[in-house]
């Protein structure tokens, strides 16, 4: 089975985000970039399915030079090879989906994994667009996946604790929900060493991806600062409680 894992490099989740001077992006200088936390689940699902059913996993990403580090990580956690579509300007869902679709069409593919969303853009749009551009079935937020020969059954959680179950013909695009195949594995030392010898194919994006952009980011701004906490004055616990009740009544007006 030929499995493709579409991944994205995002700032580490503990990064202190600083908006750039033009207010149209974030400062990336000195920021640690990692495999997107949701993409880790997609990558883990791809690796486990390969390990059980045989085949090959190709990790693919669209991004600048540094994105190669993320592909190297994917090669240490289950991918066999990787494709790096080099592009720095396409921070747009349709542009990324188009670049991915153009490459995937050239690769043998049965099962294509995407993640729920990037932790930076929070768009969650690339997966459905990719399905559409490739003319393939797409199922979002999949929590279970069973493979039986050429037939794939997937489930997703819906409101009220129920599940929706789908039979999907391959090839298909599957969006992996968090935990679909447990927690992602760590990069082990032997696997990191082996990953150094695995191939990463670097290709240029076809055409001008920036021209595909349908959405323009106008401005980024910080959320309003949280008002500081207040110490309730008072000599004893009883005094403080009394004052707190008064403040909740007269100022906060919540009781």
């Amino acid at each position: 089975m030929n499995i493709i894992a579409c991944v994205r490099q995002t700032p580490d989740t503990e990064t202190v985000i600083k908006i750039n001077g033009a207010a149209n992006g974030i400062e990336l200088d000195g920021v640690k970039l990692v495999l997107g936390p949701y993409d880790e689940y997609a990558m883990e699902a791809a690796a486990q399915i390969k390990e059980k059913n045989g085949g090959e996993v190709t990790a693919i990403t669209v991004g600048g030079e540094k994105a190669a580090e993320t592909l190297r990580h994917c090669l240490a956690v289950g991918a066999d090879k990787a494709v790096h579509v080099q592009d720095t300007g396409a921070d747009d869902a349709l542009a990324i989906a188009t670049a991915l679709a153009n490459q995937i069409k050239k690769l043998p593919h049965d099962l294509i994994f995407v993640s729920n969303k990037g932790t930076d853009s929070d768009r969650g749009a690339v997966g459905p667009m990719l399905g559409e551009l490739l003319g393939l079935p797409y199922v979002g937020l999949v929590t279970e996946i069973e493979i039986d020969g050429g037939a794939v059954t997937v489930s997703r959680d819906v409101e009220g604790g129920s599940k929706e179950k789908f039979k999907v013909t391959l090839p298909a695009v599957i969006c992996a929900q968090k935990g679909v195949r447990g927690e992602p594995r760590y990069a082990s030392l032997p696997a990191i060493m082996k990953a150094k010898k695995k191939p990463i194919e670097t290709v240029a994006a076809e055409g001008d991806l920036a021209s595909l952009r349908k959405v323009e980011l106008e401005k980024l701004e910080y959320p309003p600062a949280r008002p500081p906490g207040r110490m309730v004055p008072g000599e004893s616990a009883a005094d403080k409680a009394k004052e707190l009740v008064r403040l909740l009544r007269s100022e906060a007006k919540v009781i």
Binding site: D12, T13, V34, L35, P37, S188, L189, P190, I192, M193
Partner: peptide, 26 residues
């Protein structure tokens, strides 16, 4: 350094934190 200690067979297996989440979990 890791390659050195692995080639000297001091370490056969191990993990490397690739993100803050990994680091905190380890």
């Amino acid at each position: 350094w890791l390659e050195q200690v692995m080639s000297q067979k001091l370490v056969q297996d191990g993990l490397v934190a690739k993100s803050s989440a990994d680091l905190n979990r380890l």
